Simulated assay, not measured.
Amino acid sequence: MSEILILTHADFCPPGHLANVLDRAGHSFDVLRADLGELDGYDLQRPRAVAIMGGPMSVNDDLDWLKAEVAALRQFIERRVPMIGHCLGGQLLARALGAAIRHQPYTELGWQPMRRQESRSPWLAHLPEEFPIYQWHGDTFDLPPGAEHLLSSPWCENQAFSWGGFVLGLQGHPEMTEELVHGWVTGFPQYLDPSQPSQETAEAMLADLPAKVAAMNRVAEGFYSHWLKLAELA
């Protein structure tokens, strides 16, 4: 059993580039499917770093495993375990910290520009004032009490928050790889709606994909580096 725990919720929302970063650094990690009950019986005292990935469900769904996952996240918060949440994972962290999750009247899809809202956070030390992160969501989180607002986009005010210095909640998907972006765009055409200005077209999302993903990989690596440093695993 590893000291790094990654929680996933769907087979098409894997750790992605996070797994590449950990593999390159020689870190072992456990990947558990929370939606399949694999968190049941897990030793919550063991992890020194936790990452929570995305998924198609809503935090507001009345599902026992979602309630169990939020309860586990609250235990990690009490232990001050460094955590980073991606999309659904960011929403789950917000819920665990007492914030509401709201459904938007539109979906935000594609390469959306992030704007920094805070200039001194170590989570953002590697980033310029504006940069893109890939988005695919219809829900969004409110900021938890005591949270620091880090990023916003034109279609989603709350794109990232930090809490207590050791929690990072992200609305977007910096973990995406070329294969994942291509798979989502071509595999889920029913979610693409060109009438929504909050969405990019499929063609725009796939254009110059290697360069876009490589740039976002560098964004993600800065987040993951700080996360591992906080866990004294860097």
Rank of each mutant, 00 (worst) to 15 (best):
Q196A: 10
D64G: 03
S152M: 07
L124E: 06
R48S: 13
L109Y: 08
Y191D: 13
P128E: 15
Q104P: 04
F188T: 11
R116I: 12
I133M: 14
R74K: 15
W65S: 10
P194C: 10
D43S: 11
R120E: 14
V50F: 06
P189F: 04
L18I: 15
W155H: 11
L97H: 05
N158A: 09
H86Y: 14
A160E: 08
S2V: 01
V219K: 02
P197I: 07
A234C: 12
P113H: 08
M176A: 14
H126D: 12
P105K: 06
A94K: 06
H149N: 10
L44G: 05
C87N: 08
H226D: 04
A96T: 07
G138S: 13
G41N: 06
R79W: 09
H226K: 07
L124R: 03
V59H: 04
T107M: 15
M83C: 02
L63F: 09
A72W: 00
E130Q: 15
F188C: 06
S198A: 15
V167P: 00
N60F: 06
M216R: 06
D139I: 01
G90Y: 06
L233T: 02
R48F: 09
G164Q: 09
F161W: 13
A160F: 02
F76G: 02
Q112K: 10
T201Y: 07
V70R: 01
L192I: 11
V81L: 02
G89T: 05
D193R: 13
V70T: 15
L124H: 01
E175D: 15
L93C: 07
L36V: 12
H226R: 10
F166K: 05
Y106P: 04
S153K: 05
F12K: 05
H126V: 03
F188S: 10
Q135E: 15
H17C: 00
N20I: 04
